[in-house]
């Protein structure tokens, strides 16, 4: 069973074709070009590299967020339209969880941080236990500097992953003794990890609704937050339309 995996949640553009047994091909780059320009040509190329015809695919896995709102929508729009046209099952997988797939080792706390702007990150922490990935701390938005302090108080070795580490931690914040930043090639999202996670979900029979699937934004739009601040009474009465 070969599937296509897509991750456009950060500045990395990554696509992969994989089955449970092997990663057939992966095209990952962090360059100046936009996802909008490169994503479809990359999908075309990675299928060619893997010698898999698009009509031989058996599913699509897409990194669903959190991450760059626009990046997520480019990936998801492409994934949905392709799943629709080729009649394939589609699964959205957590961008944070896919990051933790870089380090399938026990005894380490994996702290995944995706850029949430203004010094903040979407943070989720994980631990591998007996071959299973467990969420330790559920996703939240936190100041990156505070997350690093928090990691210092953890009793186990900590590995930091995600684009917020690349942008805001490496070379900018001194890390406590028990904390290391993942090396560059393992720090950023990769479609290979999205594929492996997606394959598990697809094998378990999951098939997301392509008509309704949305990115996991975590945050509402700034306009909405501002509106509620200005209209506290009305905000209480009506549920915000963008509430997740």
């Amino acid at each position: 069973m070969s599937i296509l995996a897509i991750d456009t949640s950060t500045q990395v553009s990554s696509v992969a074709v994989a089955s449970k047994e092997r990663l057939s091909a992966e095209l990952t780059m962090q360059a100046k070009l936009t996802h909008s320009e490169t994503l479809m040509p990359h999908i075309e190329q990675v299928l060619k590299m893997a010698s898999v015809a698009k009509d031989k695919l058996e599913g699509i896995a897409v990194s669903i967020g959190p991450g760059s709102f626009t990046g997520l929508r480019i990936g998801l729009a492409a994934a949905k339209a392709m799943a629709y046209a080729l009649d394939l099952p589609l699964v959205g997988v957590s961008t944070l969880k896919a990051l933790a797939y870089h380090y399938p080792v026990q005894g380490v706390r994996l702290v995944c941080l995706l850029d949430a702007q203004k010094g903040n990150a979407y943070v989720e922490t994980y631990r591998w236990e007996h071959g299973q990935l467990k969420v330790v701390d559920d996703v939240q938005v936190a100041k990156i500097a505070d997350v690093v302090d928090w990691c210092a108080r953890m009793e186990e070795p900590v590995v930091l992953l995600g684009d917020a580490v690349q942008k805001k931690v490496v070379g900018k914040i001194d890390l406590p003794q028990n904390v290391t930043a993942a090396p560059a090639h393992l720090m950023m999202p990769r479609a290979a990890c999205v594929a492996m996670l997606g394959l598990e979900e697809l094998a378990a029979g999951r098939n997301d609704n392509i008509m309704a699937l949305e990115p996991v934004y975590i945050r509402r739009s700034e306009a909405e937050v501002l509106w509620e601040k200005r209209h506290p009474e009305e905000a209480k009465k009506t549920l915000p339309t963008e509430e997740m």
Binding site: L39, T70, R73, I74, A78, A79, A81, M82, A85, L86
Partner: peptide
């Protein structure tokens, strides 16, 4: 609006490629 345009463009490219 760039973000709005990108949804349509991305879906259209994917449909054209898939078909």
């Amino acid at each position: 609006l760039v973000g709005a345009l990108l949804v349509g463009v991305s879906a259209a490219k994917s449909l054209a490629f898939s078909l």
